[in-house]
């Protein structure tokens, strides 16, 4: 029975650091609005830039990435606008990169290695391809940003 004690000590002490928060991510604003515009004069509608604040800690030299995935197409009742009509321009590059939204495959927004500490800030400007074919309405969709480290 005396041999049980050393095992308990080994279990409790090293396990504590694994619970520390290592990834932080925040967006501002979280509502991204494209104003209505004339397709002839504004073929690409820009939304106000989104500020991305992120931090990666205790990551050693491992890679990290920030991705974005749309929950679906832009929807307005029975009408939809394919989400691939939404692209973005992101800075600074690197670690940020430009891309096109997808509802099926998470798209990389930024990537790097090691830690990012203290917080770093990126800027993402979403753009909507503006065409005459869209039905009038107020369209909406949710997009999910994921900051991950292996």
């Amino acid at each position: 029975m005396r041999t049980i004690v050393p095992f308990l000590l080994v279990l409790l002490v090293p396990a504590a650091p694994a619970l520390a928060q290592r990834l932080d991510l925040s967006l501002s604003p979280v509502v991204i609005t494209f104003p209505s515009s004339d397709p002839d004069t504004v073929p690409l509608v820009l939304a106000p830039p989104v500020q991305v604040t992120y931090r990666v800690r205790q990551n050693n030299n491992a890679p990290w990435s920030l991705t974005v995935l749309a929950a679906g197409d832009l929807m307005s009742g029975p009408s939809s606008i394919d989400i691939s009509n939404v692209t973005w321009v992101a800075t600074p590059a690197p670690p940020f990169q430009n891309g096109t939204l997808s509802k099926t495959v998470a798209q990389r927004v930024a990537a790097g290695n090691g830690n990012v500490n203290p917080d770093a800030i990126g800027s993402i400007t979403f753009r909507l391809a503006n065409t005459w074919t869209y039905s009038s309405g107020t369209y909406t969709q949710t997009i999910l940003f994921t900051l991950s480290a292996p």
Partner: peptide, 23 residues
């Protein structure tokens, strides 16, 4: 090994809104 467990992921949602007016 547990001390090096992957941190997993941190997520954040945003909402896209697009206004398309009659024209």
């Amino acid at each position: 090994a547990a001390g090096r467990v992957p941190a997993g992921a941190q997520t954040s949602n945003a909402t896209l809104n697009a206004s398309i007016n009659g024209l």
